[in-house]
Design a protein around this nucleic acid. Structure first.
Length: 109
DNA sequence: AAACTGACTAATA
DNA sequence: CTATTAGCCAGTT
């Protein structure tokens, strides 16, 4: 395997600590516009020996797409919190503040 | 090869 | 807020 997966991994690896990106965003940055699903699929199929910050990829609502009881769901949340990402009571992330915006001056704060 | 599946998204209702 | 519809497309069966 290569092609799409490597691009996706490459993009995900660039996500800075304490920031998150959406699946659609990653797809777009990877040159796979409209392939949001493939991003999720690729990450799901990511071998454990490939260390990438997959936890920084969330869905468009700023939520973790995995169900808590399934593998990784709570782990992802824990990892993100450890990076300083703040979760709302509903387990959601404020994308306005934490979404990674590459190639753009971060005016936020 | 055809059908199924899925860590998605956006638009409607 | 939930539900439905539709668009997307690679990997599995």
């Amino acid at each position: 395997m290569s092609t799409s997966y490597e691009r996706i991994y490459a993009v995900v690896k660039r996500i800075p600590r304490g920031r998150v990106a959406t699946y659609g965003q990653v797809a777009d940055l990877a040159g796979l516009h409209g392939h949001a699903r493939q991003v999720g699929y690729a990450l799901h199929a990511t071998p454990a020996h490939v260390r990438i910050p997959w936890q920084r990829v969330v869905n468009s609502k700023g939520e973790i797409s995995l169900r808590p009881h399934e593998g990784g769901g709570d782990l992802q949340a824990a990892l993100l919190e450890a990076e300083g990402v703040e979760f709302s009571a509903a387990g959601r992330i404020d994308l306005d503040r934490y979404q990674w915006k590459p190639r753009r001056v971060r005016i936020d704060r």
